[in-house]
Amino acid sequence: MPLSETPSAVARPRPRAGDRVFAGLSTGAGLLILVVLAGVAAFLLVEAWPALTAPPEEVPGGRGVALYVWPLLFGTALSAVFALLIAAPLAVTIALFVTYYAPRALAQGLGYLIDLLAAVPSIIYGLWGFTVLAPATVGPSGWLADNLGFVPLFAGPVSATGRTMLVAILVLAVMILPIITAVVREAFRQVPRLHEEAAHALGATRWEMLRMAVLPFGRSAVIGASMLGLGRALGETMAVTIVLSVSGGVTVNLISSGNPSTIAADIALQFPESTGLAVNTLIASGLVLFAVTFAVNMAARTVINRRSEFSGAN
């Protein structure tokens, strides 16, 4: 059946031009990612420069940018590290529960519940931490101060409002929990079924199987995921801003009313009211935060990527 009178006579548009434009656009979008990241660093540096070069007594606090940022950096690290110490083990056990213990039919739904924790906006965690969690910690904090007061963390005196570093840490832990859980679950999902079956075939109980076949496999994922969580906790702003009652000192006392602020919370509190050099100083502290989280995230991604190269699961 000849079709010869049909389309080869039809003019085709210049495919070459279209291809070149589209390839150029998408390559440009790829490069834009790198440009934006470089731009974040560059623009923050430019706007921070006046504060970095100003005489120390003109910077808010009167002692220069470094001494302005230092207590904030301390508070940031303190809250993030303790939040991680709480969240990481919990996240691993939750990932184990969802992957290996929950009934098959429910597993996905239960995993979704954990993911919902990540969907709650941080301002809501802040309001909740302030109204519900903070008052609830006053009693237990008193007990801690009375019985474990010799530990510097629980030295007291106990804050009457509960707006302490401890509450900030707990809220941060809740917020980074779903992030760590998601990465660890993904790693557990990639554990070769054969390893699990081999362990079961040796007569292992479920826990022995997990220890033999699953946990070693997931180790670097747990490390990478924890660092991701750490990065998130370092940069979390609103929840800390609302929950924490700040006095600026450098202390590891978690339950008193004299708490160091964090970089992010300090920016959120000060920025709307600031002008001139104060703005530049805040941007300088933001630059420090960017550098720290960038380094942590790069390390985390490197660990996670290396794992997937060596996993051999595919």
Binding site: L3, T6, P7, V10, R12, P13, P15
Partner: peptide
């Protein structure tokens, strides 16, 4: 093949073409 290459054809011509090709 016609639509994706961006060639312009009348609706009735495409109808024809589809029928002929499917018959073939």
């Amino acid at each position: 093949g016609i639509r994706l290459t961006g060639a312009r054809m009348k609706r009735s011509e495409i109808d024809d073409l589809v029928e002929r090709s499917l018959r073939s």
